[in-house]
Design a protein around this nucleic acid. Structure first.
Lengths: 225, 225
DNA sequence: CCTTTAATCAATAAACTACTAGAGTAGTCA
DNA sequence: TGACTACTCTAGTAGTTTATTGATTAAAGG
């Protein structure tokens, strides 16, 4: 039997929804979107950060663009990709939330990794805010400087992980250090805390990243253009 | 070169996220989740509502269950599927929002269908609430009665579309009628408004469904168990 | 003009996915 | 017990997606 007009309409709409989900239906593409949520990037920077070949990265970015999840502009030799609007970041957070709620494996994998790296006590966000305001803790953003520039937690210092050791001298020894990076599954802050502790600092990790911070309606600071 | 432990961890996590997205990466599965967001259903009810074969519906439901997006219990002959928690409905809304923001085609398809059905003026939600409270409009929930039971907008009357014509006598002629169903892309209310108008009622459609209503933090009424 | 670098395209093989038809299982009821 | 209903599983086919390779295009600079 032929489909009714109502069925035709439904199918068309659901296909559009599926198209969006399909775009995030690959681990590589999720990673690319997560990276782009921290700020715009060139294809080649993304390829290096995600440990993928250039051609493969380009191909995946085009799938994402086809679904409207990213947009791109050419600037000289480079093509820069970015998220077109905040709803894409919200979608990423929604996926993460479902994954956390429903897939025991996420928790299992996380715990296994954190244990292997003797990583402890993710910090409570509400308590932190008060302590940062009172100057009791040093808040470090250990992501690359461009990501800091395109949005960071107010009061944070930009100390990219590779520069951490050199910058140590400038940090007050007594004060506790809180480090954060892209979010609960980003490894930069984990590594930073490990290094800080090895050098005698009292250091903990903030689980949340800027994305989570913003999603709670909290203010985000921006530098430069 | 061998992957670092950090890379291994990232890949494992992103694969879990992708698994969730993958579950919604098919028009059929999106439809099933949307139906389940209105309340629990048996496989066979879902198959009929989504115009799919029983075997195919069962297969898709199992993909969804594998990703943790639905859960099922057997009750006698019937297996009932349901959404395990509200984060799944939130995910659906996030997908819809991105699709609306990014895919011009959604808007195009919608407008085409609504025009073909001479459907007009989706109603403003804030204004509606006040008018319902003052008794100026009759608010109709035209979904099947089980969906009404598992959650509806406060003050709404359950008048399933197939029963609409019979129930007309009980509606005050003078008062404007507002009909809603599952959400902006559900066709039940569109059809209801068409029938009401053909019989001389002043009728408009409320775009939002119960899901959207709840997502705004507004109260939802529940009947029975 | 030729070279270099960034990105994309084209072609392929391997790996998945969707759907159907038909067989099989679990539970109900006479 | 046997007939029946709701659902799941199996196998097979068709179609889609993925990563890789090497070729190609686009811009910048000597």
């Amino acid at each position: 039997m032929p489909p009714t007009p109502g069925r035709r309409f439904k199918t068309a709409i659901y296909e559009q929804f599926a198209r969006v989900s399909k775009a995030l239906a690959s681990a590589h593409r999720v990673e690319l979107v997560e990276l782009l949520a921290q700020g715009p990037r060139t294809v080649d920077a993304l390829a290096r950060m995600a440990d993928m070949t250039l051609a493969n990265t380009s191909a995946h970015l085009q799938v994402l663009r086809g679904a409207g999840l990213v947009e791109s502009t050419r600037e000289g030799l480079f093509v820069t990709y970015r998220l077109p609007d905040p709803s894409v970041a919200d979608l990423l957070l929604a996926v993460r939330k479902v994954a956390e709620a429903r897939l025991a494996e996420v928790a299992k994998v996380t715990r296994a990794f954190l244990a292997a790296n003797s990583q402890l006590e993710p910090v409570d966000e509400a308590a932190l805010r008060a302590r940062v305001r009172r100057g009791e803790v040093t808040l470090l953003d250990v992501r690359p400087p461009e990501e800091f520039a395109s949005g960071h937690i107010p009061g944070a210092l930009s100390v990219p992980l590779p520069a951490l050791v050199k910058e140590l001298a400038r940090l007050p020894r007594r004060r506790e250090v809180v480090a954060y990076c892209r979010g609960p599954y980003c490894v930069l802050a984990i590594e930073a805390v490990k290094q800080l502790r090895a050098r005698g600092f009292k250091a903990v990790r903030l689980e949340e990243g800027v994305l989570d911070w913003a999603a709670r309606g909290l203010r985000v600071e921006r530098t430069g253009a």
